[in-house]
Design a protein around this nucleic acid. Sequence first.
DNA 1: CATTGTTTGTGACAACTGTCACGATAAGGT
DNA 2: ACCTTATCGTGACAGTTGTCACAAACAATG
Lengths: 207, 207
Amino acid sequence: MSRKISSTGIERLALYYRYLTSVNGSEQAFISSAELAKAVEHTAAQVRRDLSCFGTFGTPGRGYDRAALEEKLSGILGKGKCQNVVLVGVGNLGSALLAYKGFQSQCYTIVAAFDNDAKKIGKHLKGLEIQDIEKLSDVVSQTGAKMAIISVPAGVAQEVVDALISAGIQGILNFAPARVVVPEDIVLQHVDFSIKLDRLCYGLEHA
Amino acid sequence: MSRKISSTGIERLALYYRYLTSVNGSEQAFISSAELAKAVEHTAAQVRRDLSCFGTFGTPGRGYDRAALEEKLSGILGKGKCQNVVLVGVGNLGSALLAYKGFQSQCYTIVAAFDNDAKKIGKHLKGLEIQDIEKLSDVVSQTGAKMAIISVPAGVAQEVVDALISAGIQGILNFAPARVVVPEDIVLQHVDFSIKLDRLCYGLEHA
DNA sequence: CATTGTTTGTGACAACTGTCACGATAAGGT
DNA sequence: ACCTTATCGTGACAGTTGTCACAAACAATG
């Protein structure tokens, strides 16, 4: 309970959680910090430190109770209730995200898709009608969505973000290759794989 | 020239580079650390510190020469020559990545696509024939590709990575929601958006 | 119940990362 | 030639993050 969790620490918690749920059911009822660490490519001390930020629920000599830990992590990460998510930008990437199974198997549901291209509006994709981005505000209040995923061109990312925020969205996952600014109270995460590719390129160059 | 660049520092360099190339041509010939910092949501001191790791090419009173800086960053990141990239896993996400314009506009070209699904093999997508993953080794040596992108299910990520490495691939961009292990000399980057979504969820919960 | 073996939780430490502040340096005008 | 203004490069500092090592806690066994 001693230290404040860091942002990267939270991502590690999500890794721990994903590992626990992925090897569901089988095996031992307890798992040690060493075993968990090995599964996610970290150190045992790191695992214990991360978990200790939220109380003490390991038992010396045995490790952590798998079910209890899974439950606890679920609570910490806020995965108790399913989240409604809206998606803006139904291009190649947006379509793929709509179809992506990984979201559904977790606790997220994409409940609406938007675009500004007249040729796409009205069409159906994966059971969702693509709607005019003008409808954003209405849909957000109807569905109670707090999170949004944007996969739009870099040039319009900022204006889409602004529209989302004034529609009441509180958290944004940004796939657009651009940095955007948000108010203090809005949570923003970037998934910027063009940058990651460059990072890779650098790694090769300086091998 | 004083300090060693960090991994996150390199990603910032890529951000600087992307900004410079995106506002191509127009405006002033020089840019200050403050202006660059504002564009990528960092501090001026941070920008100067990052750049200083690779020599001193700013001029006091003026800032950095845009063209020279762009050139320099290109060199540092290793973007001088175009990189051939192979893609493994042509599902929803893989197809989207094949079609993604962002790669081509940069210096990356996807030269081959692989899958293990017999129903997909032989089909054409975006001008590429989807090939049997058995052919990996041959294609890698023919094309001289050093980088690979994998967008396969979590369960097979490790074996695909192993196959890539024995085929001669040196850098891997992993979109699969799983951590994999690679030898010391292989560069690996994760694009793990299910984790980022969880991170977002946590942020909302603890607002 | 004492002993042995295992694993946790955490204080202390080390390493890394970002910020601040300021001397140094260049351009431009008078 | 000098002064002013703008901006860089970096030493020193502060804050953050990860590692180590060990006492405390619990299980298991005889």
